[in-house]
């Protein structure tokens, strides 16, 4: 038993080291395109900055959105964006490249390596393209907490990190499900759309949407647990909308969802091996 634990720890450390080596090489490769990388980051930052600005303009004109003021809604947005950025750093490239790899046969090159599929893909897919998302959302969070007159104490910081951690895990699971479905169907567009549609939904308080969307965003794809439920508790908002008091369930939802996503991914990969391309 202890041997088995030791062995899996050794494996995990090895994959971490592999991530480190792969990331080093990826950064070295990226330096050839330094200029376009910087431009890309600035462009993305601008896109999201404008989205934040428009959000502020719109809600300020109306005072509040279903009891949430502009800064509170911007917090929802920034938490969602931050979690998306963290998850994207690890998982986006898998989702982006896997369909093409499967289609063109490049996935076979992964299978002839003496590695476990998912950890290897994770190790080789780390990207730094989300610096803009993450930096911008931290800035906006700072701005909003300041405007809301909530001093960022250590206790608050710990709660924020907890929310972001589980939020990232949920986004990671979503990325994995879209990626894994590439093993089963040739077109993953519809799932892709669902993921990004609900990402858009998660920028606003869930309570403004009809019940059916609220239920879907809680049960089907647990977007509500990324930011809405935990922030409602953090900001001490009234319990309206959603499926009731669910903030405490965020960690459970995140861990269960992520585990299920991993299982789904591995089963799908296995299916690929028996059916081929």
């Amino acid at each position: 038993m202890r041997e088995a634990v030791k062995e899996s720890v050794r494996e995990a450390v090895w994959y971490l080291r592999l991530t480190y080596v792969f990331t080093g090489k990826a950064i070295k490769a990226m330096l050839t395109y330094r200029c376009s990388f910087v431009i890309n980051c600035i462009s993305q930052a601008m896109d999201y900055a404008v989205a934040f600005l428009l959000m502020w303009v719109m809600i300020s004109a109306f005072d509040s959105l279903n009891g949430w003021n502009a800064y509170e809604v911007m917090l929802l947005y920034s938490f969602s964006l931050f979690a998306y950025g963290i998850a994207g750093t690890f998982f986006f490239n898998i989702m982006n490249h896997l369909p093409g790899q499967i289609w063109k046969g490049g996935f076979d090159d992964v299978l002839v390596k003496p590695v476990k599929v998912l950890p290897y893909l994770l190790a080789s897919s780390f990207i730094c393209n989300y610096i803009a998302h993450i930096t911008l959302s931290i800035l906006v969070m700072g701005l909003c907490f300041h405007a809301l007159e909530m001093p960022v104490t250590l206790w608050l910081l710990a709660r924020i990190i907890r929310i972001l951690l589980f939020g990232s895990l949920i986004y990671g699971g979503l990325f994995l499900i879209v990626s894994g479905s590439a093993f089963l169907v040739t077109k993953t567009d519809a799932l892709f759309h669902i993921m990004f549609f609900f990402r858009e939904v998660s920028y606003y308080p869930l309570s403004i949407f009809p019940k059916v969307i609220q239920i879907m965003a809680t049960v089907l794809v647990p977007y509500g647990f990324i930011n809405f439920y935990p922030l409602r508790e953090l900001l001490g908002k009234e319990e309206t909308g959603g499926l009731g008091y669910l903030a405490g369930w965020s960690p459970v939802a995140a861990i269960v969802f992520f585990t299920m996503a991993c299982l789904f991914f591995n089963l799908s990969a296995r299916q690929y091996k028996s059916s081929g391309s």
Binding site: I59, N66, Y204, P205, F209, I213
Partner: peptide, 9 residues
């Protein structure tokens, strides 16, 4: 989504 957003506002 947009419609519900405006309704909410």
């Amino acid at each position: 989504l947009k419609v519900y957003l405006w309704k909410g506002l």
